[in-house]
Design a protein around this nucleic acid. Sequence first.
DNA 1: CGTAACCTTGATTAAGATCAATTCTCGTGG
DNA 2: CCACGAGAATTGATCTTAATCAAGGTTACG
Lengths: 240, 240
Amino acid sequence: MKHPNDISTIFLFSGLNEKETLTIRDFSTIRTYSKGEIIFFDTEPFLGFYGILEGLVKLYKISAEGREHILHIMYSGSTFGEVPMFEEFTENRKSELVYPANAMALEDNTTVIKVPEKPFMELIKRNPDISMKMLASFAKRLRFLNNHIESVTLNDVSKRLSKYILIEIGKKNDSGGKPESGGIDYIELDISKYDLASHLGTITETLSRALRKLQSDNLIEVYGKKILIKNTTALKNYTK
Amino acid sequence: MKHPNDISTIFLFSGLNEKETLTIRDFSTIRTYSKGEIIFFDTEPFLGFYGILEGLVKLYKISAEGREHILHIMYSGSTFGEVPMFEEFTENRKSELVYPANAMALEDNTTVIKVPEKPFMELIKRNPDISMKMLASFAKRLRFLNNHIESVTLNDVSKRLSKYILIEIGKKNDSGGKPESGGIDYIELDISKYDLASHLGTITETLSRALRKLQSDNLIEVYGKKILIKNTTALKNYTK
DNA sequence: CGTAACCTTGATTAAGATCAATTCTCGTGG
DNA sequence: CCACGAGAATTGATCTTAATCAAGGTTACG
């Protein structure tokens, strides 16, 4: 079998019929990356977007001095790097289109499908449902980035951290977990503290101190990558 | 005349035929705001998106302490507040959909059209061209927000200011101005320094000092809202 | 002109980055 | 199975940037 992976796990492709799925797969390439490998840089010309079949990917920007800021952590089922595909239609476009951020695999065996522009744009023209899914995922990202900017520019590190923890609890409860109303809830970080710091717009030292602060305020308890939430209500209040 | 304004100046509606234009206008409302008036808050339930027929609108977030951060300055021809319309299709959606930021008119006579969800979604289903335009404008915004986050989290205020100036020169040259290669170019700020500071993620005092710094480095000269660029190449280098 | 909004300048403070030194954790090979 | 070593995380001391606080100065507009 040339393409062993099932691309219907990718939200964007979940509504396609057999023929359409095969078309996409015939034009696409699947590749596995190990931890730390770069998928693309934000200086590279756009050659197709990506969908995650397995693993974890970070999308990030990096400064001249090497400081990094993570915009998104993407999980399997998500697509990324689609932005340039739709910028073609924008007025006043000059230079070649590049990816809007850097992408790196965060786990070994991170498997992605790379879908070239042409066949996908053909498909989307005949399939309005795909545009709607694309719009939905762009909308979700826009709101996320709005909130992210708000967080980073208007709150201090401890508040940002609290918000992050609350969002992670929310995700966990969405996907089957019981809400534990009042009781002690916990999350297990799926990324390193370096990456968490970078996502919160800070560095590991400052994150470490922020974790201590929340702990000494009796809001959480930290055991390595496990964070117990001792008082969800107080934590919610803290973010305000 | 019930609807005196021409909505075809709005990019999203520019390709519509007469009948479609009339349908949109029949379902929509047009209103003029004066400087400082709120169009919507980020806590308000979504009741339709907006298009600017005339004037200037800022989209911003505000902290509990009253500090503000501007995400976008929108000009006539742009639409805003569309995000919630496409979030309906997202999984795990609970609470009522609200606007993703606050919106305020920055000039007197800012005239906007408010388009309700229902008739627009009908139109978009039959008109794939509109989805493409919507995707193009979302893509543009996503790249802008990516770069904005990079700026705010990875650069100091003077660098952010330099980048802003260079982007404004770019816009000006796009829309008819001559590139003035090597010569002295200038921009005229169309927003207050308070708003510029807020967009750069800082406050007026710090912006004032950043302007002085660029001036003392001989990169620019400031005369009120007019900024002369004395050395474009050096300014570009400075942002790196 | 007069007054309010806008902008600038100076002095001080605070948050977080940087620098430096341990300590902790975990995977790998002996 | 244990020991080692490297990467990850923590802690402390110091420094830097920009926010805050406090006056003045400028501009624009009724």
